[in-house]
Design a protein around this nucleic acid. Structure first.
Lengths: 332, 332
DNA sequence: TTGTACGCGTTATCAC
DNA sequence: GTGATAACGCGTACAA
């Protein structure tokens, strides 16, 4: 099938291509009968506007790039759905990029983002480099970052304050006489873990104590799951154990059975990032409901706002809230 | 920052834009010193080729579209990673589309795929409409379908033969005297479930029986999880229970505890689509390892081959194999 | 080896 | 209300 262009339509409808363009873009000035004539020609030929050519002419692609850490779709699925749904509302296309642990990975991604002339970019990357953002900024690519609060006011950010989450939770525990708290490392989410740790340290400090029960996952273990199962065979558990992801929480749960201690009686367990699997365990795992879908939706909405109201978008920092869902791995 | 074009570079390096273009595209014919001169100009100005303009000129965008069912990133994450990694190798960009249950959803997606002039498309959609594929075909968009075998030889397909999987498994069960088999419906994956059901029916038929234990999930239940937990409170379980996803298998597991029957002694449990959560349950759930990452990688590779060897790609149907992973929910 | 000129498909600014 | 025509940024025959 021959590629059919606006010019073919013009010839078919016996008008100029300018008129066809007007019809396509819903210009008001075109007379009704010619509009119909053009519409029919479009229909007959099956003409679809070439977005690439439009992009060139208009200097905008109506597509935005999103970059996600590789192999994380399992627990960023909600974010992506939020992004996609909202993008659809605003008629934006999505260019998906992923970054793995590789050194220069991110640079390649930045490179192709710039070349593709997307109108904006949403970045969710745990180990985010300031320099890379500067590069994008330099090329005038509007940016929204998910997961990290950015002080830069050219950059938008949508995030959860994990530090405060942890701080408040720790304070409650301490107030209840449970200051024996440990936190399990998560090598896939260093930034989140750092924030949580910060919050715990602050809480302990304010109570004249020092938080020092950070359970490191040795590099030689393929997964924290395997390690934790081993770990608790010869380590007494803390009264309160905090993990970031569901799989780690489940690992603790399984380890408890094998190691012979009982949750929540001997040790309470809390998972920060809730998932449906937490509710499926027995006992069901207490966790914090993080609004992942909303994070995606808000990010996209913020970006479109930045794109549209080119001037000043008043508040570029959006902190989202969380909800604690007590289940069966914690007392009362 | 002013948009800098190939023309700016040409002026800076004091050559014509044609030469700059040659340098960019690694043409062999350009003299070494001029190449360096141009490279320096590019570096100095921070020039990045405009992929949009290139796309217009070359009539190809080096981006391919992928369409995934919405809210499925949790269990299609592996596929997406395979797609992305492979696309990266071949320097293709990815345009991500999702389809929800909405009626005209898919048409919108097709529409924007055509407009965006992508070089090809990979579709993973359970409820796939033949008509939609024809539309894409009509606009000469090369297609690879994941999950369904396509007899059309303009379309590539990468899939798992779930029917045979189920058939063979059922035959083994029957041979071992366990012909009391039930299959749990999965409304999110009707096509997979249908294939499995087909396989079971064939196996039963060949043994002079009829498969009739298809457990339907009533629409009024939000999730099969909730339903199954209820269901087994007043239904005796089959000797062998088959589910498609991990969450359903876990539901059966939990239900067994509440309903007072024991797995695997009273009833064996098999999950078709394995996930890490299966291994995390107690007892660990037996399942089939489906090569999801490979499905993505193979799809992308097949598509690039179709794009490159424009003529005939010999085999456009790729059936991938699976491996049964016996764990603790099945006997021996 | 390098430069000129045209084409890629649209939008937008002018005239008419 | 409609029709030429110049951008938009780049690739590439064709000339030089």
């Amino acid at each position: 099938m021959k590629r059919i262009t606006i010019y073919d339509v013009a010839k078919e409808a016996d008008v100029s291509l300018a008129t066809v363009s007007r019809v396509i873009n819903g210009s008001e000035v075109v007379r009704e009968d010619t509009r119909i004539k053009v519409q029919e020609a479009i229909e007959k030929l099956g003409y679809k506007p070439n977005a690439i050519a439009q992009g060139l002419a208009l200097q905008k692609t109506t597509t935005i790039a999103i970059v996600m850490p590789e192999a994380s779709f399992f627990y960023t699925g909600g974010i992506i759905n939020g992004l996609l749904d909202t993008a659809k509302i605003y008629k934006y296309n999505i260019m998906l990029h992923s970054t793995s642990a590789g050194i220069n990975e991110m640079n390649d991604v930045i490179e192709s983002i710039i070349k593709s002339r997307v109108d904006g970019v949403v970045i969710f990357n745990d180990k985010l480099n300031r320099e890379e953002l500067n590069t994008l900024n330099h090329y005038n690519v509007p940016i929204v970052v998910i997961g990290n609060k950015m002080s830069d006011d050219t950059i938008g950010s949508v995030y959860i304050d994990y530090a405060t989450l942890a701080y408040e939770y720790a304070c409650e525990c301490i107030a209840a006489g449970k200051s024996d708290i440990s936190l399990v490392e998560d090598r896939k989410n260093p930034s989140m873990i750092n924030q949580i740790r910060e919050g715990l340290e602050r809480a302990f400090e304010e109570h004249g104590m020092k938080f020092d029960k950070f359970i490191r996952i040795p590099k030689e273990y393929r997964s924290s799951y395997v390690f934790l199962t081993d770990y608790y065979k010869d380590h007494r558990p803390s009264k309160v154990i905090i993990t970031y992801r569901d799989s780690q929480a489940i690992a603790v749960l399984n380890a408890s059975k094998e190691a012979g201690f009982t949750i929540p009686q001997d040790a309470e367990l809390v998972c920060v990032l809730d998932s449906k699997y937490n509710a499926m365990q027995r006992p069901q795992i207490s966790a914090f409901k993080i609004p992942d879908y909303d994070m995606g939706a808000m990010s996209m909405r913020l970006l479109t706002k930045m794109l549209h109201d080119e001037d000043e978008v008043l508040n570029k920092e959006m902190e989202l809230s969380y909800v604690y869902i007590p289940r069966q791995t914690t007392l009362q």
